[in-house]
Design a binder for these strands. Sequence first.
DNA 1: TCGATACGAAACGCAATCGTATCGAAAGTT
DNA 2: AACTTTCGATACGATTGCGTTTCGTATCGA
Lengths: 192, 192
Amino acid sequence: MRGRPRSERAEKAIVDATLDMIGEGVTVSELSIEAVATRAGVGKTTIYRRWSNKEDLVVDSLATLRLPMPEPGGTDVRADLIMFLEVMRSESGELRNRCVTNIAMNEADRFPDLYRRFRELVIEPRREAFRQVLRRGVAAGELRADLDVEVAMLMLTGAMISQTKMSGPAHRVPEDLPTRLVDEALRGFRQR
Amino acid sequence: MRGRPRSERAEKAIVDATLDMIGEGVTVSELSIEAVATRAGVGKTTIYRRWSNKEDLVVDSLATLRLPMPEPGGTDVRADLIMFLEVMRSESGELRNRCVTNIAMNEADRFPDLYRRFRELVIEPRREAFRQVLRRGVAAGELRADLDVEVAMLMLTGAMISQTKMSGPAHRVPEDLPTRLVDEALRGFRQR
DNA sequence: TCGATACGAAACGCAATCGTATCGAAAGTT
DNA sequence: AACTTTCGATACGATTGCGTTTCGTATCGA
């Protein structure tokens, strides 16, 4: 291949700018190529040479997100559940990781293809890992045999997600929320 | 007062158009006065005569939402909790009522004033009612004396909200989800 | 009936963003 | 050294929406 090769640095700067803006809460509709170019310190040409439109840019950018999947210990259900929620909590504090929730919650209706790819790539693997922790807990007799695993997962993750979204990027999710959530869920609300 | 009075019908049409569009998932940023005017069958003048900008229009429109607050029976905590979640579930099926979640989840970061007013007007009263149900349950000895009311509320409502957002406007939230959520929460996950 | 105000429609100038084109300079290959 | 491609910058016409103004008509109170 002849000619000047494409700049790796420019490409990374574009993707970084895109992810940062989405993390800040800019919707896909609002995200302007011009803003991305400016923020990345790059000409618009350089973006359009690589991606033909905004959605492609967003999809490819999100695909570069490599969120480390926590590895559950497998012996203590309580500890594993807290660990998963703690990952959600700490990630919510970093701008970049807010992409995940922002895309999942805000863009599902309007960009179904984007949402579907993102769901398969990021969300479902995590849900499955979480599900396995609960299943192991049931199998080990640590959790009720008739526990509704899907509902249990929804209660814990839904609480974290709602809290994250409601509190906004400025506020922090309380450090002890994962522990408190898991303990309340394990004990049950009812007096005995 | 002299002169032609302002048209009640036009005003209602404008507010309805605004709420419908928000319910459909149009963000406040995307919501254009021109689109509202067209949809309401009204001139832009008629809108600007009443509201000086988009945010005012949205705030006032949301303020007209009179979401019937369920009246808890006060005797059976389980029944009251299920009733609250059931209201959330059934409302999520109607376009108009999706305004509540759409605004609360998507616009908090970008329109903090709007979010604050909306929170005081719509969200907090409901949260408080929900909180009271749990408090009464504790006082009556039906729930654990050391129950973390805030965490309990977060688990139940967060689960409903997440499920609603994740499933999108097309899908329906399962009818039995409120019951399953409340029963799991009351029992606790742990084997005894 | 008359004067005041609201009505819907249309046009205004302004700003943002779109996707494309053009530029000279830079950075590679052959 | 010659050639090719990308670089960032800049300008382009098109489109959209803003908030304002103007228009002739409609609808009220006095």
